[in-house]
Design a protein around this nucleic acid. Sequence first.
RNA 1: GGCCCCAUCGUCUAGUGGUUUAGGACGUAGCCCUCUCAAGGCUAAAACACGGGUUCGACUCCCGUUGGGGCUACCA
Length: 475
Amino acid sequence: MTVRVRFAPSPTGHLHVGGARTALFNWLFARKMGGTFILRIEDTDRERSDPAMTKGILEAMSWMGLDWDEGPYYQSERLDRYRDLAQTLEEGGHAYRCFCSPEQLASLRAEASASGVGWKYPRTCLSLDKKQVRERLDSGETAALRFRVPDGRVRFDDLVFGEITKGLDEVEDFVLLRSDGHPTYHLSVVADDLDMEITHVLRGADHISNTPKQILLFDALEAPRPQFVHVPLILGPDRSRLSKRHGATSVLAYRDQGILPEAFDNLLALMGWSDGTDQEIFDTRRLIEAFSLEGISKADAVFDPDKLAWFNGQYINALSPEALSRCLVPVLEDTGIWEERFDTTDRAWFLSLIELIRPRFRSLQALAREVRTYSGVSVEYEPAALRRFMSDSRLEEYLPELALRLETVDPFDLHGVEETLRALAAELEVKAGLLINAARVSLTGKAVAPGIFDVMVVLGRDKTVDRLRRAVSAL
RNA sequence: GGCCCCAUCGUCUAGUGGUUUAGGACGUAGCCCUCUCAAGGCUAAAACACGGGUUCGACUCCCGUUGGGGCUACCA
């Protein structure tokens, strides 16, 4: 039997890290097993669904590299199918009409909870006979369709959580079809999982409590149950459900912060899953190889932005310069740095620049900003850097002298520039550090930068000399 | 409140009765490297929630307590 899994977000919000992790696990499992990954949009709630959200979800998944084999299917296009199934259930005696108004039920529920009593639908309409139902329907009254929950106990074996049981006396006769004829979640999910021949329902653990209801539906329909695989939830730093107040939770927000999809996927995969080894870095290929349902844990996990940043730094440094530059160029274009500030389009130069600065940065944005330092025509001096390394008045003579000597160094390479600077320092009887640090501020405007000789070589002779001379006027 | 589920360093986790003075990673601190800052290397502090059992022996099994999460809608 080939594996068929699905990711079924509802377009009522952005794809957040929890949903993304569920999508990733589904995708990994499908790819690992040579199965099929299906994308389904659960948009039966017309009021809250938004096509713009669907667009964002698809965009986020594509960014993460999660390609789907079928879909996206839209539940809003399958309404007739759900109604057919509802009818089947009703005819089979598994469902009945309910004329109680939502308002009425809500107030009853409120009363019950105020007095601290548990509440479930009291089956008011179950006692209605066929004739009464017919009459009220014919007179134009609207009714919801409720599932008639049988007695007993439901049990199922979750592939992560093991055996889970639930007494049916705790489950109320839930609504299948709203009074406007629209299906609810439980009906549409079961119908789709059935029709799409889903073999493994892999979803968030928040659905464990829903599973008994859905199993009841599968059973009533005399359909085979899929395997259930519930994955623990991702929590915010305060261990509560991830929400807006925890900062960025949307996948696209991480993309926009300069996170690489590989790093994002890597972190997500390690939340609630482990291959049992000490390995931390898994590129997508390795992830597929190593992934297994057995490695999924039961405990909820707190999302750690610091570790994401670390992973991102790892990938920024591990990517080939070409691959990294492909990621970086769009960022440079977005921020306008590419067009406005580049006075060279020399590819080899760009790659060597990236190579030089990348160990220092953990996001594409930060890397892009740093590119500006080397590509621009002018230098922006940081006051703190000036104060720290440029306060020595002798620099007024030393810097032009250094520039003069560098003008004639041949070849202008790592060895050449270093020799020149150190020789000058020796002649002047000053520490090389004085010239080195002053040169750093002169060339980059900053107190923090890569090794100064590397910087000189990357900048090239003309820019180096020019910036050294200009710096004197900034003293 | 009721029901369901979970519980190892601050965080992500390894660990499936003895191999454990509980391992790795992030973060934190220190050291090395060094022209600054990173990166890298080394080191340190840091956890089995608690109480009962079971057992020759429990982080590992069982029960309870506590804590946390989920569900409890004509949302999904």
